[in-house]
Design a protein around this nucleic acid. Structure first.
Lengths: 247, 247
DNA sequence: CCAGGTCTTACGGAACCCGAACGGATGCGC
DNA sequence: GCGCATCCGTTCGGGTTCCGTAAGACCTGG
C-alpha cells in the first residue's frame, strides 16, 4: 500500500524520475501533473490507451499512473499490454464504488490503487512510495513481523503464533498498514485516506473495520491490548507489551 | 462534517505560516482573518480572483482559503489557474452547503472544503489540519524528554519514570506544548490560542485543565513543583535539574 | 482589609466509541 | 440461472468519557 517502510531512499532521490500520467479527464490530469511536477517528477501525459502505450515505449517512464476508465481500450487492458513488454510499476486509478476493480487490479498485479476522487497530495505520496519500493528491488515487499504476528504482503497471508488468520481484504490492508507504522496513532480520516484511498467518506467505516479486525487478532476483543483506541484521536497498534494505564 | 484529526504536529509548529484569504465579502474576510491571525497565522487578503493570483505569486502563501463565488472570474477558475503554477494547498468556501458541492470541490483537487456559513473556529481547525497534512504524513515526530518525563507525540504516549500517564487529549496537547517550551511562561490567552486554537474563550478552561494535568503529573498536586503558577502572568513548566528536549 | 487573581469542585451536555444489525453487492457452488 | 455465503458500508441506540463553564473558597499583593 502507500505505506513507506523504513528505507534509505529519501524523497530527494526520487527527483527527476519520469512519471507517465494516463487520464482522459483534462482537469484531473492537469491537477495531478502539477502536483507531481511540484514534487520533482518529470511528468508526461497521455489521454487514451494507445497514446499511453506509445508513451511508455518512447518515454521509458519509471512509473505509470493509469486510469481504469479510458476511451478506446480499457485501462485494465492497457495494463496487461504494458506488463507484456515491461515491468514498470503501475498505480491504478479507479472510480469509487466499484470494488471489483480493486480486486481485479490486485489480481492483475498493479502496484497500488487509488480511488477517485483522490487528493492530489495522496497521489504524490503513493507515487513516491511505490517508486521507493521498486528501487529497493531486493525486497519487493518484505515480510512484516511484529510480536507473534507475521504478515506477508505479497502472499497476502497473515498469521498469529503460526496460525493463519482469516482476514478479509480490508482487514488485511488495515493490519498491514498498522504493522508498517507501529506505535503511531492514526486518525480515522488518515486511515480512510491511506488504507481505503478515499479523499472523504464515512468515518464509521473505519470504526467498524477496526472492530472486526480486533475480533480476529485480539485475545479479548472487548479490551484490546494491541489495536488500541486513543480517545478523540484515533487508533494505534502497540508493540511494546501492553500499554494501557489506568488512572 | 467532523473535522479535526489530531496529528503529531502541534499547532505551535504552524505559527507564522502564511495564509492567503480570498473572499469578496469584507465582513467574512475580517472575521476569518482575525481568527486566523489570533491562531498565529500571517494572513494576506484578496477580494477577487486576479488579486488572488497576484497575491499567490507575490506572497507565496503556505495555504489558500478560496471563496468559490467571486466577482470577475469564478473561484473554481482561479483554483485551476493556481494549480497551473503551484501546488499550494487550497481550502474552498462555498455558499450552498450541499454534499454535491463538497464532492465537486474535492474532485477538482481542493484539499478541503467548508460550507458557508461556517464557524471561524472550524475554519482555523481545517487550516491547521490541512497544513499539518501537507507538512508531514507518516514521519514520526521526535520524542520529547525532560527529566523523568517522556512524551512520544506520534504514539501519543506520555510516561513519568517509565509509568504511563493516562492523559486525555487536551491534557496531552497541553503537556506536549509545555515540554516543547520548557522554562517559559505562557499566559492563559497564549495557551488558549496555541494549544486550543481558539482566538477567544473562557480562560478558566485553561485553569481547570492545568489543574487536572497537575493531578496526574505532580507528586503533590497541591504544591506543584513542575507545572508552576507565575502569579499574574500564567504558567510555566520548570525543568528540574537537567532539561533537554531531544530533537 | 480589599480587590483581583487563582484554585477547587461539581455538573450538564456534547462528543465520542462501541456493539449490533441491516441491506446491498459480489462471488461461488449447484 | 438461482440460492447461499461472504464481505462491505452504513445506521442506530446506548453507554462512557471528556470538556467547558459556573460558582464559591482560597490565596496573593498592596
Amino acid at each position: 500500500m502507500s505505506a513507506a517502510a523504513p528505507s534509505t531512499i529519501g524523497n530527494e532521490d526520487l527527483v527527476g524520475r519520469r512519471v507517465l500520467l494516463v487520464d482522459d479527464d483534462p482537469t484531473v490530469a492537469e491537477v495531478a501533473s502539477s502536483y507531481l511536477r511540484a514534487a520533482g517528477f518529470v511528468v508526461q501525459e497521455a489521454a487514451d490507451g494507445f497514446a499511453a502505450l506509445d508513451a511508455a515505449d518512447a518515454g521509458r517512464p519509471d512509473l505509470i499512473v493509469l486510469d481504469r476508465m479510458l476511451p478506446g481500450i480499457d485501462g485494465l487492458e492497457v495494463f496487461r499490454r504494458l506488463r507484456g513488454r515491461c515491468s514498470t510499476p503501475v498505480i491504478m486509478l479507479t472510480a469509487l464504488g466499484s470494488e471489483d476493480d480493486r480486486i481485479a487490479g490486485l489480481e492483475a498485479g498493479a502496484d497500488d490503487y487509488l480511488a477517485k476522487p483522490f487528493s492530489p497530495r495522496e497521489l504524490v505520496l503513493r507515487v513516491q512510495s511505490v517508486l521507493r519500493r521498486s528501487i529497493d528491488e531486493f525486497t519487493p515487499e518484505s515480510v512484516l513481523e511484529c510480536g507473534e504476528f507475521r504478515l506477508d504482503p505479497s502472499a497476502r497471508v497473515a498469521t498469529r503464533a503460526g496460525a493463519e488468520l482469516a482476514l478479509t481484504l480490508r482487514e488485511f490492508d488495515l493490519l498491514e498498514f498498522l504493522l508498517k507504522h507501529p506505535d503511531q496513532v492514526f486518525s480515522r480520516e488518515e486511515l480512510l485516506r491511506t488504507v481505503w484511498g478515499w479523499a472523504y467518506g464515512d468515518l464509521s467505516t473505519v470504526t467498524v473495520h477496526v472492530r472486526r479486525l480486533r475480533e480476529k487478532i485480539e485475545r479479548n476483543p472487548r479490551s484490546p491490548t494491541m489495536l488500541t483506541t486513543v480517545w478523540g484521536v484515533g487508533y494505534r497498534f502497540t508493540t511494546t507489551g501492553r500499554a494501557d494505564a489506568v488512572g
